[in-house]
């Protein structure tokens, strides 16, 4: 039962990763693509991490997975901001 729940979470997470990739390919410009990467992949990672943590079953491993999730979540939001900022600088801030 627990395995089934974990497998469902991991599958759902994969769906969000696919959505992020589809967005990356289909969206018109770099900023919209960043939306897809930061948000959809972020939730995808959270779901996969949660599912794997259930399967891992030891508290130590679950703790490490939670740490990994936390640092990736923080760094992806920051990286998204930095890439968008750099893109705007490269364009000369013409969107103001």
């Amino acid at each position: 039962m627990l395995e089934l729940f974990a497998a469902t979470l991991i599958t759902l997470g994969t769906v969000f990763f696919i959505a992020g990739t589809v967005g990356l390919l289909r969206f018109p410009d770099i900023y919209c693509r960043l939306h897809a990467l930061t948000k959809a992949d972020g939730l995808g990672l959270a779901l996969v991490a949660f599912g794997v943590a259930i399967l891992a079953a030891t508290p130590g491993a679950a703790f490490r997975i939670a740490l990994i999730w936390f640092f990736i979540a923080v760094s992806s939001a920051t990286c998204g901001h930095l890439i968008a900022r750099h893109a705007r600088l490269a364009e000369g801030g013409r969107h103001d």
Partner: peptide, 14 residues
């Protein structure tokens, strides 16, 4: 909110 944000962008992508 992060679930809402991800679902929103995923629906737009698909």
């Amino acid at each position: 909110q992060s679930v809402r944000g991800a679902v929103d962008v995923a629906l737009r992508a698909f």
